[in-house]
Write a protein that binds this DNA or RNA. Structure first.
Lengths: 215, 215
DNA sequence: CCGCGTCTCTTTACAGTGTCAAGATTTATT
DNA sequence: AATAAATCTTGACACTGTAAAGAGACGCGG
């Protein structure tokens, strides 16, 4: 609507922006790579800049702070976490119990595939907890789980204290399993997981459901 | 046995060591305070040294690294976590179910009282995971939970795959609840918790137990 | 009682970090 | 085409962790 009036042919595509193309997006990608390689503690803004091929002060024009960059990255993580859970639920058939367990398996799969990002999202003090976009994405991811619980119990979970306890318990067991797995604290499970990871995890998550029907 | 032969009266007490008294212990205490105030990310070795009233390079003689200091601190944390869980179990009467829930409540209480330390113990990449003392203390804390599960099911949990699943599920729900609470992700529980924290948490942890009897 | 080595701590130095300010360069606007 | 605005670079600063070398305090053998 407003960009690319004339001579938009020699540079390949260049979505919207100027020198770099889209440095903001490139920085987010570089930050995720840096995070995955170095962990939350070893994460370095200068390293991110180098990875993106720009000077060490360039990120400042797109993210006020290192915290701001990490906050944006965490928000993106919540979006992907929610998307993965939702996708798993969509492929899970019609039994509400299966669907709830599937959403949990998606949650755990995300944590296992992106341990440093997951820790950033939940464990770290660095992202700004008050950030609005972050909060929104986090709530979106959370909604998948709430809906799955509601489908199983047959009532909106937040209408009763029992429903709230259901949600808390379901989230706790899923999150705890995910977190302990990526913290390498569940070595005693490893042999079983290597044999049949999904089934073993589903067998543990089964415990979410038993007394929910009459919640 | 080997120190304090003569003239051990003018300096107050001075347990074992020289200039400072016991700098190693003082550094651990200072590190815990620094951690509680600044969080895992804001933690600074120089800040610890200043807190203990020594120069910034003094800690090097007691801890090779910042990592080594944090590892020792995490080990201490696991010891206290185990002790608190055990104490709660000891005060919990004879019903195995109550005892298991009590150990979980102790776990959560520790996390709530020491959030930064708890995150360091489980969430951080900084402590050296391979450290032997750390591993031992962590296993000790974990043992409390395993025993409580075994008492409830009537069999050593690690003798069967069902028992292993019981342990994993119990630990996951306790740990997940603790972690989400200190990550401020369970705001929807706050009103209930303010009314009757222990009872609400116990009501959620109840879910650990139902199908364990015939495990 | 006294030098001597050893351990504890301090001082100094250095490479890296995040952030800020000022300049250079490219794009957009009028 | 000229001016304004944006993106990015360079340079600087305070702060970090760590290493090396020096100062101070202690125990031990004479």
């Amino acid at each position: 609507m407003e960009t690319r009036s004339k001579k938009a042919d020699s540079p390949p595509v260049r979505a919207t922006r100027y020198h770099h193309g889209d440095l903001r997006k490139a920085l987010l990608a570089a930050a995720e790579a840096e995070l995955a390689e170095k962990g939350v503690e070893g994460f370095t803004l200068r390293g991110v800049a180098k990875r993106a091929g720009v000077s060490h002060a360039a990120p400042a024009h797109h993210f006020k702070d290192t915290r701001a960059l990490l906050t944006a990255l965490a928000a993106e993580g919540f979006a992907r976490l929610g998307a993965l859970s939702a996708e798993r639920v969509g492929n899970a058939g019609t039994d509400p119990k299966d669907r709830l367990i599937a959403s949990g398996l998606g949650y755990i799969e995300f944590a296992s595939a992106n341990p440093a990002l997951f820790k950033l999202m939940f464990g770290s003090d660095r992202p700004v907890a008050a950030d609005e976009a972050l909060h929104e994405k986090a709530s979106g991811a959370f909604t998948i789980l709430i809906e799955a619980v509601g489908d199983l119990t047959g009532a909106p979970p937040f209408d009763s204290e029992a429903g709230i306890r259901h949600v808390a318990a379901a989230w706790a067991i899923v999150h705890g399993l995910a977190h302990l797995l990526i913290a390498d604290k569940m070595s005693f499970l490893e042999p079983m997981l290597e044999r049949d990871r999904e089934a073993v995890l589903a067998g543990i998550l089964e415990r979410i459901t038993p007394d929910m029907r009459n919640g």
